[in-house]
Write a protein that binds this DNA or RNA. Sequence first.
DNA 1: TGGTGCACGCAGCAGCAAAG
DNA 2: CTTTGCTGCTGCGTGCACCA
Length: 310
Amino acid sequence: YVDEVKQGYFTTTQHNQIIVPILRELWDYLDKNPRLEKFAIIHKGVEHKLGLISNDRERVAKTQLFPNSQPGLLNVTDDLFQFTVGTKEYLSMDMKNWRNQKSKTWQLPWNTSKIIVPASRLSNSHWRFAALIDREGLIVGRRFYAIWAKNERFSLEFLGALLNSPLAQAYCFTHSFQQDTRARIYESIPLPHTLPLPNNIIDGLVKSYIVFTANEQYDLALQTLLKIDAELLKLYELPPRLERKLLDFFWGHKRRVPFDFTGYIPPSFESWIPLHLYISDEYQKATIGETLDRLPIITNKTTIQYLKEL
DNA sequence: TGGTGCACGCAGCAGCAAAG
DNA sequence: CTTTGCTGCTGCGTGCACCA
């Protein structure tokens, strides 16, 4: 007998089960790409004294500003979405509440701009988490990680688009089996070989998306979000077949956004057209509502079920 | 300069709770 | 029962002091 795959093809879980990650072909294709850790530094949020959160949460977090406090996030809320968050709290900076007096996490530059991602998964679906762009200088508790860009040329809008993209989300889904997404999983998200310059098209689209969602213009927000994903995927230069496989991975899964988003190109649409061509073509001709009416009807249930199970 | 041991702070595990 | 999310706790890796 001859071994047909190398041992490295497999990954082990914490229970020593041997598994083959989903979308293995895609991750192999991106194996030589730079990883997030090369361009960004990630830290866990601050930690309070043992028992303090359970017994006296009011002492560390209030809904109103109070002396020696800073706006921030302590727990995940229902209105935490990709790019945006509704509910914010004010966290006490009082050293008496610190888990460790010498902790460096409290000294981090919280009042600077950064990306915030949750420490635990937000859903069991293929959309695992939501990345926020924080320009307010929020301080976060240990249920979150903060991500600072190492390079000035690396815009926060691009970083946010990258983390919220189907590629990063699929990567975390297929590489993490725990309740929590570990820092090293976020750090190892593959990046495109060539990064865009500041003020690129993605930056503008992300800024527009945030405005549209704030104004509850969800049709425009959905169109913009599709464009963000399309522009970002273009940078990876994936073979159309692989890009399509990645997008189909999300068909039927609810995305963490304040409107309905459950898929890209219907699986019954059989040609391997890249997303940017698919939406640009549709976008020229019609509004998104009309587009949805004109989408091909899914007829082959076996095919759909097969794609869902991939 | 390199080797060793130790202290400490954080990452992540175990287990709980709430909600459906 | 499952899903989602949280906190208490602790093993371990990092970094530093000390020594040759």
